[in-house]
Simulated assay, not measured.
Amino acid sequence: MAKNGKRDREKEKVKNKDKGSRHRLDASPDPPDAESARHYQKELDRLQIEIAHLQAWVKKTGARIVIIFEGRDAAGKGGVIKRLTERVSPRVFRVVALSAPTDREKTQIYMQRYIQHLPAAGEVVIFDRSWYNRPGVERVMGFCTDEQAKRFLELAPRFEAAMVESGIVLLKYFLDVSEEEQERRFRQRIGDPLRQWKLSPMDVESYRRWWDYTRAYDEMIRMTDAEYAPWWIVPSDDKKQARINCISHILSSIPYEPVKFDEPEFGKRQKRPDDYIETTRTRRLVPNVY
């Protein structure tokens, strides 16, 4: 009985060992999602190096660049902008995301509050929504009249032509998302404290008025698409794909060249002065929690 029990245990051990070996052989090295995530990060890293080269070129040449991001709510504009700017200086790449106009601004010429944000030499200005609020959300939500929106659509191409003629590089992107994907992202925000702030009353209205916005955006793009300032549509149901495609297009649309980096000479650090006396006053230190 003891010998039989021992043999059974040995057989079970070998069986489990073989089972484990087969499991290791059958298992793929990495799940497909992990491989996709690595590929995305590798491509994003490469593009962000190119964005750094673009920044150096903009500073050296005094170029002026305006990039406009418009699109459906929850289409991923913020995600593209974040990846575009997270590795560069905010003094060169400025993001402009204006709130609702003040009572004073409502009495100004419509373009007036946007003009003050246009770039000087050596700057890239990114508009997270722009003057195209007028034919979009303002028109659909009744914040301006149809006559005001139509007048804007007539004047905007002339305004943008003047910008381009002055030497500004103007790029316009419209991020589009399907009804199903927009709803999924809205519902995802409801249960996520880190995203709840993104779900505004305007988002809820844009969900309900999908086709009103569709008509408004169709007319906006049709009337303001020009050879000197075309609209580029970015399908964004796949956020990562949209980011890579959009950033790649931005880089390909600007004739920048890598600028040689002049490595600085640090020299020698100064010696501690003989007359320096450390303070004896107690200083407030942030507690160690990590």
Rank of each mutant, 00 (worst) to 15 (best):
F152K: 06
E43F: 01
I247L: 08
K59T: 04
A149P: 14
S200P: 04
K13L: 15
P157Y: 06
R9H: 08
T280C: 01
P31I: 12
I126S: 05
R83T: 00
K260I: 07
E183F: 12
L153F: 00
T145I: 10
V140S: 06
Y213S: 05
W211S: 15
R269I: 14
W197E: 09
M141R: 02
E180R: 07
E278D: 11
W197Y: 14
E12R: 11
V124R: 13
E147F: 04
D225N: 13
R113T: 09
R113Y: 00
A242Q: 02
R38K: 15
R9I: 06
A97R: 01
A121R: 15
Y228A: 04
I168A: 12
V124L: 14
K198E: 06
F127P: 09
K268V: 12
V80P: 10
T282L: 12
F261H: 13
Q148M: 13
T224I: 11
A229D: 05
V95P: 07
K271N: 14
E43K: 11
V88E: 08
D176V: 02
V96N: 05
R87S: 05
R269D: 07
E50D: 14
A229C: 06
R209D: 11
V95Q: 08
K260T: 09
V66N: 12
I51G: 06
P119A: 09
A226I: 02
L118R: 13
A63V: 01
F143D: 12
W231C: 07
K271L: 15
L199K: 08
Y132I: 01
I233G: 01
R22L: 15
G191Y: 05
G78A: 05
V137Q: 04
R281G: 07
Q48E: 13
Q196K: 14
V137Y: 06
Y114P: 11
L47F: 06
G167N: 02
G191V: 00
Q108A: 04
I49G: 01
Y40M: 02
A229S: 13
R269W: 11
V92T: 15
Q108F: 12
A34K: 11
R113I: 07
Q196T: 11
R64S: 05
D192Y: 09
L98I: 06
L155H: 12
H23G: 03
G71T: 03
F69Y: 11
E154D: 15
